[in-house]
C-alpha cells in the first residue's frame, strides 16, 4: 500500500526532474548571483567614495563620541585641502594601514604647533612647522589617544573623509558643528 504510493511519488519526482530545463535554471540563478555581487560592489563603492554610516569605537574622542555604541555619518566627498581647523576627520592610521581612525584637525600646512603642551610625550617647549601637504591631528581625549604627538604631521593623502553628524543614539543625534574658537582670529 504505502510502498506503491512511495513508488508513485518517486515516479512523479523523477518525471518532473526530467522535464526541468536545467540549463535555464543554472543560467537564471547564476545571473541572480552575479546581480547580488554587482549590487554589493555598488553599495561598497558608494560607501567608499560618497559616504556611509559607521559605528565608532575607542576612547580617544571622548567626550565628543563615546567609547562604543555610537554611529556617525561620514562624508567622503571632500577635498583634503578644503578642511578647516576643528573638523573631525577620518584617515588611515600612519601606524597601521588596515586601521581607520578619526581625530580632530588642529593644524594646517604652514601652521606652527606645540607638540604637546602638557609635556607628556615631548618637551612642552618643542614646536614644529607643519610641512606642505600635511596636517596635525589630536584626539579630543588627549590622555587616551595616539595621534600627531606620537607620529607627527599626517600626510593629506591618508585622509579619507569628514564626520558630519551623529545618528545614534537618537537622544544625542545632531550635526557636528565646528567648535574651534580662535582667541586671536586669523587675519586672512
Amino acid at each position: 500500500m504505502s510502498m506503491s504510493r512511495l513508488a508513485a511519488l518517486a515516479e512523479s519526482l523523477s518525471s518532473k526532474f526530467k522535464r526541468t530545463d536545467w540549463d535555464g535554471v543554472t543560467k537564471k540563478w547564476g545571473l541572480r548571483g552575479l546581480a547580488v555581487v554587482n549590487a554589493a560592489c555598488a553599495i561598497h563603492l558608494f560607501a567608499e567614495h560618497v559616504g556611509w554610516i559607521h559605528v565608532v569605537a575607542g576612547p580617544s574622542m571622548l567626550p565628543t563620541m563615546s567609547a562604543s555604541g555610537e554611529a556617525v555619518l561620514e562624508n567622503r566627498l571632500i577635498s583634503p585641502s578644503n578642511l578647516k581647523r576643528g573638523d573631525l576627520v577620518t584617515y588611515v592610521s600612519p601606524l597601521d594601514p588596515t586601521r581607520m581612525v578619526c581625530k580632530r584637525l588642529i593644524g594646517l600646512p604652514g601652521d606652527v604647533v606645540c607638540v604637546d603642551p602638557t609635556g607628556a610625550t615631548a618637551p612642552s617647549t618643542e614646536h614644529v612647522v607643519i610641512p606642505k601637504g600635511h596636517v596635525w591631528f589630536i584626539g579630543d581625549n588627549a590622555e587616551m589617544s595616539r595621534d600627531s604627538r606620537q607620529y607627527g604631521p599626517v600626510s593629506m593623502s591618508l585622509i579619507r573623509g569628514k564626520l558630519v553628524a551623529k545618528v545614534w543614539p537618537l537622544s544625542s543625534a545632531g550635526w557636528f558643528r565646528n567648535n574651534f574658537h580662535y582667541i586671536d582670529p586669523p587675519s586672512h
Partner: peptide, 11 residues
C-alpha cells in the same frame, strides 16, 4: 617590490 604610492606632499 615596485609599488605605486600617493606622494605624501602632493598626493
Amino acid at each position: 617590490d615596485i609599488v605605486a604610492l600617493r606622494s605624501p606632499h602632493e598626493g
